[in-house]
Design a protein around this nucleic acid. Structure first.
Lengths: 99, 99
DNA sequence: AATATTAGGTTTATAGTATAAACTAGTTTA
DNA sequence: TAAACTAGTTTATACTATAAACCTAATATT
């Protein structure tokens, strides 16, 4: 009936992050921060969770003199996202029986 | 970019409940319990939250000698669900630019 | 040349949320 | 009449999200 929803992706911010990472090579911390409107603190925490689950990799380097954090999605992350999309459809497509 | 996700519906169980209620007149507590696999306690709590938000109405009666709880979606609930569906698509449809 | 400000984050305290276990109230069955 | 079951509700606990406070180093200001 209903497919279980990956708790890691059933979070507004983490879903937005993965959504942004899908289809691009990599993104910088600040670009994600701006596009999602998240606070740096919250974003930092959520990125770490995604990294722990191996959905993304976090690369630390320097841009000029400043530290720079770059994010990249992994195969595991891509698969998880695709699974999530398929699962959420099992909830929202029921509506179609009505219309 | 990303539409905000109604926190009330961004929950596996509550989304499943609303999904089940969409398109039917009403459902009994136990049918929802079975179809979602939720524990009675958790379901009771989540239903109350949906009721507080006026997404559903909870009717208490008797079936034979046993108490019977029947759930029904409201117009507010239908609208919230449709909003949620539209919002979640802003996260999962980004993928399409890739394929 | 001190000191204030900004960049780019991380850590942590707190409030909010989900869940199952324990409980209530009554019913059926042995 | 006591054990087990129906149909839930309440509550204790663990988990989660978030922003405020913090950190380190670079740059700008006086």
């Amino acid at each position: 009936m209903f497919k279980p929803l990956d708790p890691l992706l059933n979070s507004e911010l983490r879903l937005a992050v993965i959504s942004l990472l899908i289809g691009v090579e990599e993104i910088e911390f600040n670009e994600i921060k701006q596009k999602t409107g998240a606070s740096a603190g919250n974003l930092s925490v959520q990125l770490k969770k995604l990294e722990e689950a191996q959905y993304i990799t976090i690369k630390k380097s320097f841009k000029g003199n400043y530290p720079l954090t770059t994010l990249k999605i992994t195969t595991i992350g891509i698969n998880a996202f695709e699974q999530y999309v398929s699962a959420i459809k099992s909830y929202i497509n029921i509506k179609k029986k009505k219309s």
